[in-house]
Design a protein around this nucleic acid. Structure first.
Length: 477
RNA sequence: GGCGGCGUAGCCAAGUGGCUAAGGCGACGGUCUGCAAAACCGUUAUUCGGCGGUUCAAUUCCGCCCGCCGCCUCCA
């Protein structure tokens, strides 16, 4: 298995620090709002990577933090006249609603900054002791980039380059313009925590260093996040962690590309931020997830409602296949001879899927294999009146295995579930049975005017009827 | 200014120094159907932005040019 490592800027063979075990950390959201499509991409990308590692048999420990202490939260809380912790807690809950909708697995631990102040303070103290952080009279603590030799190694730039291109006004209290805050002293009405340097709050970057250290140790395998985090966030994390422990931090750095909306950068000023909350009202999560995985994770991905059509249709094709497969199983026979040819092709599909994912998690190619599997299944079912049970079960197992990695469809007890919502289903089903029965009578009498009218009008309210040799099928559109 | 990416069929999107350039959507023809739908079968890039170079051979490597985009500031 190979993955692209931002640190070395090339694909590398993946060798975990401990055989059979993978420790990974991904930067989670700052909880001051609902998550948007860009957050969703990062979530889905790292969830898929994690799922594939599990598929490969690794024991994976996955940590994703919540930044629940932050300037943006303070600002938002003021606007809403809320307590910062309460506001952050609210959006942590909202986060789970959206992440669950996207079929993103929960992390093993979702640590919050607010619950790790002692660890953070401890780490800052260590950096001061080691002489790579310093305090100023106001109570702020800064990291001294000149005292950490490797600064810039992740983003591939030198301190001098950065200074030349710096656009921010330099705080004269810093020793170097690139020094960044580890601890910010509190202004009068800001939330504050005690520390040896006075009341204040942690800087943005130190939390990930402190929490990854606590849950994964000094060195771990994969650290991920959006490409925008490479600098300064991840660069600073490396400086803090390696500065404090003297050990190499994460071995592999994985970054996902950005999402644009209709070819435009997603930003507040353009006003084109797409919230997951709104998107799932329009598109089913399976289609969103399929869309997010239809491009390689490092590439930029353009979201356009029009482009979602292909994803929606594609997912429908997969769903139809799953339904045909289940139907095929009801008329399958276990006494028919084995289909050696198909069995061989299924095995080839598994190999193709794995080599796609082994190659820097090429989910676009992996999805193509899933579509090929659907074609194989449909084709077999089409040409076989009496399908063989064993091969169908194998095909279903394979489909489920692929889906288990891509996470397109929800699964319960190892089986894919397609029903999006329950509820009134029983009544709807009964009414439809009734209507379909009446329509069948018209069809028998060749009263096609009536039968077509029923079909057309059902279609208008979102119910599609399909007449098949196995009877009438209906589905919601 | 510094760093990086991209340009493959109508759209989205993989990919490879030489073997039929994946897959999805769309379109077209056929099978099935009372008609549809779904599914199946087939067609849809002699060609991979342009120009040069390396090579027996380049879409794939190198150079230049054109076009597009991202990061360098809070941001997934």
């Amino acid at each position: 298995m190979e993955l692209f490592n931002t640190l070395t800027r090339r694909k590398e063979k993946f060798i975990p620090g401990e055989p059979g075990r993978v420790k990974m950390y991904s930067c989670g959201p700052t909880t001051y709002n609902f998550i948007h499509l860009g957050n969703a991409r990062a979530l889905v990308v790292f969830d898929t990577i994690r799922r594939y590692l599990i598929y490969k048999g690794y024991r994976v420990t996955f940590i994703q933090n919540f930044t629940d202490i932050d300037d943006k939260i303070i600002k938002r809380a003021r606007e809403e006249n809320m307590d910062t912790i309460a506001l952050a807690a609210k959006y942590v809950n909202e986060y789970f609603t959206d992440a669950d909708a996207l079929n993103v697995m929960r992390a093993d631990v979702h640590p919050k900054v607010s619950e790790h102040l002692p660890e953070i303070v401890e780490m800052i103290g260590r950096l001061i002791e080691r002489g790579i952080a310093y305090t100023i009279p106001e109570g702020d603590v800064y990291f001294s980039v000149r005292d950490f030799p490797g600064y810039g190694k992740l983003s591939g730039r030198s301190l001098d380059d950065m200074l030349a291109g710096a656009r921010v006004e330099v705080d004269p209290r810093k020793r170097d313009a690139m020094d960044f805050a580890l601890w910010k002293s509190a202004k009068p009405d800001e939330p504050a925590w005690d520390s040896p340097w006075g009341p204040g709050r942690p800087g943005w970057h130190i939390e990930c260093s402190a929490m990854s250290l606590k849950y994964l140790g000094e060195s771990f395998d994969i650290h991920g996040g959006g490409a925008d985090l490479i600098f300064p966030h991840h660069e600073n994390e490396i400086a803090q962690s390696e500065g404090a422990t003297g050990k190499p931090f994460a071995r592999y750095w994985v970054h996902n590309g950005f999402i644009t909306i209709r070819e435009e950068k997603m930003s507040k000023s353009i006003g084109n931020i797409s919230l997951v909350r709104d998107l799932v009202k329009v598109f089913e999560p399976a289609a969103l997830r399929s869309f997010l995985l239809s491009t390689h994770y490092r590439s930029q991905l353009d979201f356009d409602p029009g482009k979602m059509d292909a994803a929606v249709k594609g997912v429908n094709r997969l769903k139809t296949c799953l339904n045909l497969l289940e139907e095929g199983l009801t008329r399958a026979d276990d006494s028919v001879g084995t289909n050696v040819d198909l069995e061989k092709r299924l095995e080839e599909l598994r190999e193709r899927f794995e080599s796609a994912m082994d190659d820097d998690f090429n989910s676009a190619l992996a999805q193509a294999v899933l579509f090929d599997l659907a074609s194989e299944i449909n084709s077999y079912l089409h040409q076989t009146a009496q399908p063989e049970q064993g091969i169908l079960l194998k095909a279903r197992t394979l489909f489920t295995a692929f889906n288990g990695v891509l996470g397109v469809f929800r699964e319960e007890n190892g089986r894919i579930v397609l029903k999006e919502e329950a509820g009134s289903d029983d009544l709807v089903a009964q009414l439809l049975d009734l209507i379909i029965g009446v329509r069948e009578e018209s069809r028998k009498k060749k009263d096609f005017a009536t039968s077509d009218r029923i079909r057309d009008e059902l279609k208008a309210i979102g119910i599609v009827l399909e007449d098949t040799p196995q009877g009438v099928r209906w589905k919601r559109n």
